[in-house]
Simulated assay, not measured.
Amino acid sequence: MASVSILVADDIMAQSKKARKRSDDLRSIATHFARLLKADLHFLYVEDIPERLRKGDKIKSLDQRNPQMTAKLRAELEALNPGSELHLDRGNPILKALEWEKKLNPDLIVLGTRGHKGLSKFFLGSVAEELLRRSRRPVLVLGPHYSSAEFPANPRAGLRILLLSDLTSASSRAEAYTRKLAQKTKARVTLMHSVGDPIMRLRQIYAQSRIPMYSLEKEVQEIKDFARIQMKKKMERFKEDGLTVQAKLIEHDRDLADDIQDELTEGYDLVVMGTHAHNRLLTVFLGSTSRKTCLLSSVPVIILPSSS
């Protein structure tokens, strides 16, 4: 048994063509990372059966109802990655997933999302959002625009990671995770930060408070200079570990989600970002930016809770 493990929340009973494709993509990306990290794979399927029907075994387990199908599936998963395990459970998908997270303590959780509710409602009320909100482990999300044809972008060159940081302690865990992942996979990293949002908020404060605008540009320059200094320090930390890293500082007021999507066209394989302790995505990605990033990204997005 490997010391590293990956838990995949997979809908093995997917019926529609689109749902089956999403399930295949989950297995493919999980297998890819299992090989990169030399990890064991655990596939979890939870039947969402009401408690009143679970009592007294009114409905038999999937293994009992269709042993041939589950045996075939286990063989398929074993062929994908030797040692893979299939865990079948029944109950609330969110609570059961969290139970298995606690039991297995995986190094990575992999799940997909349909994003069928639109940008303003993406994740809301969904299993994906609740797991992101309550999980303490890194979670890899495959959005509806994930393209298996684009992963990996260049198999021979190794992974290329876009690390989104707000340069505060809230991003420390995501940065540490990226360094560790880059060391294991010989990945190249781009550290990306935007000062557009704090500058935009500062302009609003000046306008609302009727503060003389002549001092605004000085404060704007201080924000930019501080960001450059912090990014330089963080890049040095990567270089100390022998990693290839470059910086991308966004200085304009444009929607950051659009900048991220533009940057992803440069051939990235993965996005890594963090969350604050109060379970909101990084404050640098205010409003719909974080949702749009996950929803529109053609590559996997790994989200980590802060260490606090």
Rank of each mutant, 00 (worst) to 15 (best):
L95T: 03
D166A: 04
E85D: 09
D89G: 13
Q183Y: 11
S297A: 11
M1V: 00
F123Y: 15
F122M: 02
S307G: 08
Q64T: 11
P212G: 02
S172I: 00
L132G: 13
N66K: 10
F285R: 01
M69S: 08
S28K: 12
M13P: 08
A187C: 05
L86F: 02
G91A: 06
R134M: 14
H193I: 02
P93S: 04
R133S: 02
D197Y: 15
A9N: 05
Q246H: 15
H42L: 03
A277E: 11
L191N: 08
S308I: 07
K186I: 00
R22E: 12
K103P: 09
S172D: 07
K55N: 14
P300D: 12
K292Y: 13
D197M: 10
Q208Y: 14
L95Q: 05
A277G: 05
G115R: 01
F43L: 10
K58H: 14
E175L: 09
E263R: 09
K103N: 15
R210C: 03
Y146S: 11
P152S: 09
I109C: 00
S28A: 05
L140Y: 15
D269N: 08
R254Y: 14
K117N: 09
R65G: 08
Q183P: 05
E76P: 13
R173H: 13
L202N: 08
A247Y: 07
D166C: 08
G56P: 15
S5F: 04
T265S: 14
K224V: 05
D10R: 11
I250K: 10
S307V: 01
R280K: 09
T31I: 02
M200Y: 00
L167D: 08
F238E: 12
T70A: 11
S148W: 07
D259N: 10
G83M: 13
P212L: 13
R179N: 00
